[in-house]
């Protein structure tokens, strides 16, 4: 089975700083890592490959430094990696990104399953995966917490819901996005790391895709307009309950009851 995993490089911090003049992320001096949810996607891809055979290919769209996360994926056991980089796609929003990735996937062609993390931790939109499926007219199962069964032609998976889970069956090819409950991503292996250090990803620009419509990508082609970005002020509205543990617990339970959270 040919499995494609879509991955993204993000800054390695949860306390992202923003340049208020340009509205963009301050990346100087901040380490970049693979989006943590993508590691679960790669892990699941590798597990399917270990079961059914085949190949795991990762694709990322980003600046040249994104090669680092492709190498990380190779170190974990992926077979091949594509870096999609081009000045014309810089500044693309989720829709333009999905369009670009869909063109890449159309050109690669031979795949049965596309896996993404549930979202990237920088934008937190969770849109690109579903949009790629839409562009390619593929079925999608989002928020997959477990693959119950998979063959070359079909998949049955558990989709995490707020109140439980759905069991969804789909023919392949299809796209799934995974949540962190699905597995425990492996670390790189020593041999994997050695292979990864020497590995050169396949690099494509927009010119490598037939019929690529550059009007649909980049800052100009993106339907999204960033009007303003700001860091919301943190509000601390906590209330301290004094007294020993028993007294404090009694006061606390009264307050929760007053809010009708418990009876």
């Amino acid at each position: 089975m040919n499995i494609i995993v879509l991955i993204k490089q993000v800054v390695a911090t949860t306390n992202v700083k923003i340049n208020h003049d340009t509205g963009t992320l301050i990346r100087d001096g901040v380490e970049s890592i693979m989006n943590p949810f993508d590691e679960y996607a790669i892990e699941e891809g590798l597990r399917i490959k270990e079961k059914l055979g085949g190949k795991v290919t990762v694709i990322t769209m980003g600046p040249p430094m994104s090669k680092e996360i492709i190498r990380k994926a190779i170190g974990m056991g992926a077979d091949e990696g594509y870096l999609i980089t081009d000045k014309q796609i810089a500044g693309s929003d989720t829709w333009a990104t999905a369009y670009t990735l869909a063109q890449v996937l159309k050109k690669i062609g031979d795949y049965q399953l596309i896996i993404t993390g549930k979202q990237a931790v920088d934008g937190d939109t969770a849109q690109v995966g579903p949009e790629v499926a839409a562009c390619l007219d593929l079925p999608i199962i989002s928020w997959v917490r477990k693959i119950e069964e998979i063959s070359e032609t079909a998949i049955r998976a558990e989709r995490l819901m707020e109140d439980g889970y759905d069991v969804v069956e789909s023919p392949l090819p299809a796209l799934i996005s995974v949540v962190k409950e699905i597995n425990e991503p492996r670390l790189e292996s020593l041999k994997g790391k050695m292979k990864a250090k020497k590995y050169e990803p396949i690099v494509w620009g927009v010119g490598d895709m037939p019929d690529f419509d550059t009007a649909q990508v980049g800052l100009q082609g993106s339907p999204t307009r960033v009007v303003k970005t700001f860091t919301p002020a943190r509000e601390y509205n906590g209330e301290r309950i004094e007294g020993n543990a028993a007294q404090a617990a009694a006061v606390l339970s009264q307050k929760i009851k007053a809010l009708n959270i418990i009876k």
Binding site: I33, P36, G75, L187, E188, S189, L190, K191, K193
Partner: peptide, 13 residues
């Protein structure tokens, strides 16, 4: 064997 070795270098790993 390879699957008995974990490698960590990046900060999160």
């Amino acid at each position: 064997s390879e699957n008995m070795i974990w490698y960590a270098e990046t900060e999160p790993d």
